[in-house]
């Protein structure tokens, strides 16, 4: 990766960390609190205006529950190294997100750790090379 590419990615990561703010109020999320959940990918919606990650998470009662995690737009994500194939149904992940204030099973994605150890998301320290 060239220095220029790297600088561009850093700029993107800095500015786009608020990318999910682009389309609607985020008053439903807790801005100061983050939760970490382990689960299995059910669906990855690579769609505008936001990509969404549907995750099955085992609850305290041992039963699986569906969670929805909102991301930036595919356009933003693609420039930060994401692809439509980055997440597949059945993948095990650990996700960090700002939860919804009302306790609903949803949140604003901050980082996601893939099964191979890669970290992605606006809160990740590094990103993959951009898809071109």
């Amino acid at each position: 990766m060239s220095v220029r590419f790297g600088l561009t990615l850093l700029l993107l990561a800095a500015v786009q960390s608020g990318a999910a703010l682009a389309h609607h109020s985020t008053a439903m999320f807790e801005p100061e609190r983050r939760i970490t959940l382990n689960g299995t990918i059910k669906e990855f919606q690579w769609t505008n205006p936001h990509a969404w990650i549907q995750v099955s998470v085992l609850g305290a009662d041992g039963k699986p529950a569906d969670w929805s995690f909102e991301c930036g737009s595919p356009n933003t994500l693609s420039r930060l190294g994401w692809k439509p194939s980055t997440l597949k149904p059945g993948d095990t992940i650990a996700i960090v997100a700002n939860p919804m204030k009302d306790g609903t099973h949803a949140g604003l994605m901050y980082t996601i750790k893939l099964a191979d150890g890669r970290m992605l998301g606006p809160g990740a320290a590094s990103t993959e090379a951009p898809a071109r």
Binding site: H23, H24, S25, A27, M28, E43, Q45, T47, N48, P49, H50, W52, Q54, D66, S68, E70, S73, N75, M100, D102, G103, T104, H105, A106
Partner: peptide, 29 residues
């Protein structure tokens, strides 16, 4: 950037931003 492709955050008539699940159901309490 087709905003209407999968807009899961509609606005209520009194200005609240909602969140929909993957099936289009409101999940806010």
């Amino acid at each position: 950037y087709a905003c209407a492709e999968n807009n899961r955050n509609p606005i209520t008539s009194d200005g609240r931003t909602l969140t929909l699940d993957s099936g289009g159901r409101v999940i806010d309490k």
